[in-house]
Every structure is written in structure tokens, then in C-alpha cells.
């Protein structure tokens, strides 16, 4: 198997793995929450938190 085919295979496997992990995580995590309004602007609610800046 040459390099190009090998990395094409890796790329495809990556996508299978991503979808599988998201599905597994969604199915197994505690998923109950109050759904936030579709748009934060004008909602009157604070941002959920979880940002690179450390919030």
C-alpha cells in the first residue's frame, strides 16, 4: 500500500471514529438540561461557559 492510499484510509477511518465516538458519547452521557434559547443575543441569559479564556 503506497503512502497516498494509506493516508486516504487513515482519513476515512478518522471520520468513522469521529462519528462513532460522538454517537457513543451522546448515548452514554447524562443529557438532561434546559435547552438555551436559539440565540444568546437578546435572550437575557448568561453564556454557558467553557471557553479557551478560562471561563
Amino acid at each position: 500500500m503506497n503512502g497516498r492510499r494509506f493516508f486516504s484510509l487513515i482519513s476515512n477511518l478518522f471520520w468513522v471514529l469521529v462519528v462513532a465516538l460522538i454517537a457513543l458519547d451522546t448515548a452514554s452521557s447524562k443529557g438532561s438540561r434546559v435547552e438555551p434559547p436559539p440565540i444568546a443575543f437578546g435572550s437575557g441569559q448568561a453564556a454557558s461557559g467553557g471557553h479557551c479564556s478560562g471561563r
Binding site: 469521529v18 460522538i22 458519547d25 451522546t26 452521557s29 447524562k30 443529557g31 438540561r33 454557558s48 461557559g49 467553557g50 471557553h51 479557551c52 471561563r55
Partner: peptide, 25 residues
Amino acid sequence: ADPHALRLAEPVLFDVTSVTNFGLI
């Protein structure tokens, strides 16, 4: 510690940055 502990317990699709990252990819 919250809010990170909450993000970790919730499905990854509830996290703002993760969902944007998936879309980006």
C-alpha cells in the same frame, strides 16, 4: 470544577466549542 465538570458530564454536542469544531472539520 464547574462549568468544566458540567461540560465533561454532558454529551459533547452540548459544548459550544466542540460543536463549532466538528462543523469546522
